[in-house]
């Protein structure tokens, strides 16, 4: 295992290129449409989970309300393209910006909250957004939703098959990964991580934690909005039921399983969870029990997630606990 890790570490750019080429080429080998749809889901949820991972895994703000931002993105796209006939690409950007603004608005009153308290607020915010979408009938169509959302075109080329959408999702995922990678490996990313690790120390080093947290939240929400926008044109019909809390937990479970605080974790999480969804389809709703069991098992045996380094935040909690148990007496003596 460590050998594999060393090899991957050494030839990182080569591996990445190989993975990208594989991702581009393999859907061309005549898969059934339903299969390609699964691939689309995997990529879509990768970006969603990845963007949640930016807030949860990198700055340690445990948000559970990602479905809300996703919802905003989808509705912005649906409303602007059906009512005002604005073309897809500028609206896509607006979907992202709309979600980012919502993220900013939610992040301001929650700046002082941490952990479970922040989770509950974001959970509530997500539900509030969904309920607004359900009840504001004049704008969102209420429980009937919005249908006949037009397909996007690109210089006369129409995205009208799952395969074409696969490449759209892939493109967005790659851009997301690239931008996030660059952010994480910069002063901005370091300040996010310093907040996750120790906010008091971060402040003592001059990190302005409030704006950093807000930007982080908005950035995560932005990508959720982008994916929401693409989702709307992909399925061509949206209603508020899609963006329930279950969806939020679904995204959350992917980053728990894949590994928080790593860029690669959400890919693995997305593959595992979406793969399981298909495999367990025969047992119907019982599959949710399986997810729950899987999450509990993961939290117990590998809290950092499948791809997580031992220095990710969740693994950290466990290591800390063990350390405290061992050296508890000594620590007391020092202080």
């Amino acid at each position: 295992m460590s050998k594999i890790k060393a090899f991957v570490g050494k030839h990182r750019s080569l591996m990445l290129t190989a993975a990208l080429v594989f991702a581009i080429v393999f859907p061309l080998f005549g898969f059934k449409k339903s299969m390609v749809r699964i691939f689309c889901r995997i990529l879509m949820y990768f970006t969603l989970a990845g963007s949640l991972n930016i807030t949860n895994g990198y700055s340690g703000q445990t948000s559970l309300g990602h479905a809300g931002f996703y919802c905003i993105g989808a509705y912005v796209m649906a409303i602007l393209t059906t009512r005002f006939q604005i073309s897809f690409w500028p609206v896509l950007l607006l979907s992202g910006i709309g979600a980012a603004v919502a993220g900013l608005i939610i992040s301001v009153p929650t700046l002082r909250l941490k952990g479970i308290y922040l989770s509950i607020i974001t959970l509530g915010a997500s539900e509030v957004i969904r309920i607004i979408a359900l009840n504001w009938e004049g704008v969102t169509g209420g429980s009937f939703g919005i249908k006949d959302i037009p397909r996007p075109t690109f210089f006369g080329f129409t995205f009208d098959s799952p395969l074409k959408f696969y490449y759209l999702f892939l493109g967005v995922a790659v851009i997301f990964l690239l931008i996030s990678y660059r952010l994480i490996h910069s002063r901005v990313g370091r300040s996010w991580m310093s907040i996750r690790e120790n906010e008091l120390a971060a402040k003592s080093l001059g990190v302005r934690t409030a704006p950093a947290k807000m930007m982080n939240f908005a950035y995560g929400a932005f990508w959720a909005g982008i994916i929401g926008g693409i989702y709307a044109v992909y399925v061509q019909y949206i209603d508020s039921a899609v963006f329930s809390l279950d969806e939020g937990f679904n995204i959350m479970s992917m980053i728990i399983i894949g590994g928080q605080g790593t860029l690669i974790g959400p890919i693995v999480g997305s593959i595992v969870v979406n793969g399981l969804t298909e495999l367990l389809r025969p047992i119907g709703v019982w599959r949710f029990v399986m997810y729950a069991a899987l999450i509990i098992v993961m939290m117990w045996f590998r809290p950092q997630g499948l791809m997580g380094e031992s220095n990710s935040i969740l693994a950290g909690a466990k290591i800390k606990m063990r350390k405290a148990g061992k050296t508890g007496g000594k620590k007391e003596a020092i202080s």
């Binding site: 002063r187 370091r190 300040s191 120790n198 120390a201 990190v207 220095n311 693994a315 202080s335």
Partner: peptide, 20 residues
């Protein structure tokens, strides 16, 4: 009581010191 960024390397810790 030391308030280090425990799960980051020493170099990363000091790099955050360069934030300002």
């Amino acid at each position: 009581t030391t308030q280090l960024f425990q799960f980051m390397s020493v170099l990363e810790n000091v790099k955050i010191g360069c934030h300002m």
